[in-house]
Design a protein around this nucleic acid. Structure first.
Lengths: 106, 106
DNA sequence: CTATATACATCGTGATACGATGTATTCCAT
DNA sequence: ATGGAATACATCGTATCACGATGTATATAG
């Protein structure tokens, strides 16, 4: 997939990955993999950015003798997903504009 | 609309604007306006980029005593639009993933 | 004992949208 | 005729961002 196109989906996709259940880095990557692949360096950059923007909170918890950072979505994060729904309504006509077959003669 | 989301659509949208008919800067902005607004500085950056990538060719023509630069899409540019169609097939499941309502209890 | 998977983190780089700014011409209303 | 929109193209600097490279540390399987 085109990198630029991916950019617009990454943040919201990460938020969606923790929407129903708190999760941690490695798990988020696994859950997103079927839809959108991203590297660890990209994910941690995004998580930090979303935390700064108050779209998620972080809590450290021990698991199997090792620390894990669990990410929890906030109201602002949920609102961000709703904004994406609105953006989607604008994207559909754009898709039509781009893929329309016009003045194509037999 | 979210800037990041816009980024992924701009290039292809400009190509779509000249797909059926050669066009020039000011006209492209007008044609795209109902779908996606962009400033002149952004458009000329994009046109230059698409030219470098051989996705369009440029020709200067006089119009009303003034020079206009007309942009013409190439085979590579048309292929870029086809790629977008393919990307779209990947985007749809991502949209589902983001907006799914799961484990929402009454 | 060693390699692989898990887990988190930072740095540098290249790509890019856009506001600000500049130049020049045409057209219209006063 | 004169001044201000609208038309038309162009450049520069800045902020944002994805990602590869790289580093640390622990658990687990062969």
């Amino acid at each position: 997939m085109d990198i630029q196109l991916k950019r617009g989906l990454l943040d919201v996709c990460v938020l969606a990955a923790i929407k129903n259940e708190d999760s941690y880095g490695y798990q988020i990557i696994k859950d997103m993999k079927p839809y959108l692949e991203l590297s660890e360096s990209t994910l941690y950059t995004i998580l930090k950015r979303l935390e700064t923007a108050d779209m998620l909170t972080v809590r450290s918890a021990e698991h199997g003798g090792r620390l894990r950072k669990y990410y929890h979505i906030t109201g602002k994060g949920l609102a961000r997903i709703e904004e994406f729904r609105d953006d989607w309504k604008e994207i559909l006509p754009i898709y039509q504009f781009i893929t329309r077959e016009e003045a194509e003669h037999e």
